[in-house]
Computed example of a mutant assay.
Amino acid sequence: MDARTAARHALAGIRLVNGAAALLTPRMMARRLGADPEQPALVYVLRMFGVRTVVLGAQLLCPADADELDRLLRTGTLIHASDALAAACAGRNGLLPCRMAAAATAISTVNVALTLVARGRPCRPPEGSPS
C-alpha cells in the first residue's frame, strides 16, 4: 500500500471512529469536551457532527473514480481546516477547556495533513481560474 492510500485509509478510520462516537455516545463525548451532557441541543449537534463525519469517512473507502476522490479530499481539507480553526477559537475564547481545545485542534490538523498526503500533490487552482 502506498503512502497516499495509507493516508486515505487512516483518515477514513479517524472519521468513522470519531463520527460513530459522536453519533452513538453524544453524552460521553460532551463530558469529554467538558460540556454539560444533559443539554439537549448539544446532544443534537454532536449527533449531526457524527452523521456528517461517518458519511465523510465512508465516502473515502469507496470513491467512484479518481476525480471523485480528488474532490472528496479537497473538500476534506477545507472541512478539517475549519474544524481546527473552530476548536482553536473555542479554546481561546474559553468555550472549551484548553486541553480539549488543543486535542481537537491537533486531531483536525492531523486530518488536514492526511488529506494533503492522500492527494499526493500540492493544492492548486483549477485550470482557467485566475491565480
Rank of each mutant, 00 (worst) to 15 (best):
residue 102 A to I: 02
residue 28 M to P: 04
residue 43 V to K: 00
residue 32 R to C: 07
residue 33 L to N: 09
residue 85 L to E: 03
residue 92 R to N: 11
residue 52 R to V: 10
residue 116 L to Y: 05
residue 77 T to F: 05
residue 100 M to P: 01
residue 115 T to W: 09
residue 42 L to T: 10
residue 89 C to W: 12
residue 26 P to A: 14
residue 43 V to S: 03
residue 70 D to M: 07
residue 27 R to F: 04
residue 34 G to C: 05
residue 70 D to P: 05
residue 110 V to H: 00
residue 76 G to L: 05
residue 75 T to L: 13
residue 120 G to F: 01
residue 45 V to H: 08
residue 80 H to V: 11
residue 37 P to C: 08
residue 99 R to C: 01
residue 54 V to H: 09
residue 127 E to H: 08
residue 90 A to P: 04
residue 81 A to N: 04
residue 17 V to C: 06
residue 59 Q to K: 15
residue 119 R to H: 04
residue 33 L to Q: 10
residue 93 N to S: 10
residue 109 T to H: 00
residue 103 A to S: 10
residue 31 R to E: 02
residue 98 C to G: 13
residue 86 A to M: 09
residue 39 Q to F: 06
residue 49 F to K: 12
residue 95 L to W: 14
residue 119 R to P: 00
residue 96 L to I: 04
residue 49 F to M: 13
residue 56 L to E: 15
residue 56 L to C: 14
residue 23 L to V: 06
residue 31 R to G: 05
residue 59 Q to N: 15
residue 93 N to K: 11
residue 60 L to E: 02
residue 106 A to D: 06
residue 123 C to A: 15
residue 43 V to A: 03
residue 23 L to N: 04
residue 72 L to S: 05
residue 58 A to I: 10
residue 97 P to I: 02
residue 64 A to T: 12
residue 114 L to R: 08
residue 65 D to F: 03
residue 118 A to F: 01
residue 58 A to M: 09
residue 126 P to A: 08
residue 78 L to M: 14
residue 109 T to C: 01
residue 98 C to M: 10
residue 61 L to W: 08
residue 61 L to Q: 10
residue 100 M to G: 03
residue 34 G to M: 04
residue 53 T to F: 06
residue 66 A to V: 12
residue 58 A to P: 01
residue 18 N to R: 06
residue 57 G to M: 01
residue 38 E to M: 13
residue 88 A to I: 01
residue 87 A to E: 02
residue 31 R to I: 12
residue 32 R to F: 04
residue 38 E to Y: 14
residue 67 D to H: 12
residue 125 P to W: 10
residue 36 D to A: 04
residue 105 T to D: 02
residue 106 A to R: 10
residue 20 A to F: 12
residue 86 A to K: 05
residue 127 E to Y: 11
residue 53 T to L: 11
residue 66 A to M: 09
residue 98 C to I: 09
residue 77 T to D: 14
residue 85 L to P: 03
residue 26 P to N: 13
residue 75 T to I: 06
residue 110 V to R: 01
residue 40 P to E: 06
residue 109 T to M: 01
residue 16 L to V: 06
residue 91 G to A: 00
residue 106 A to L: 13
residue 110 V to G: 00
residue 38 E to N: 15
residue 88 A to F: 01
residue 44 Y to L: 15
residue 71 R to Y: 08
residue 93 N to F: 15
residue 71 R to Q: 11
residue 36 D to N: 08
residue 20 A to S: 12
residue 49 F to I: 15
residue 103 A to R: 11
residue 109 T to I: 07
residue 103 A to H: 10
residue 74 R to T: 15
residue 116 L to A: 14
residue 74 R to D: 13
residue 113 A to Y: 07
residue 76 G to N: 07
residue 64 A to C: 06
residue 103 A to F: 10
residue 29 M to H: 05
residue 60 L to C: 03
residue 89 C to K: 11
residue 47 R to S: 03
residue 109 T to Q: 02
residue 68 E to R: 09
residue 55 V to P: 00
residue 48 M to T: 02
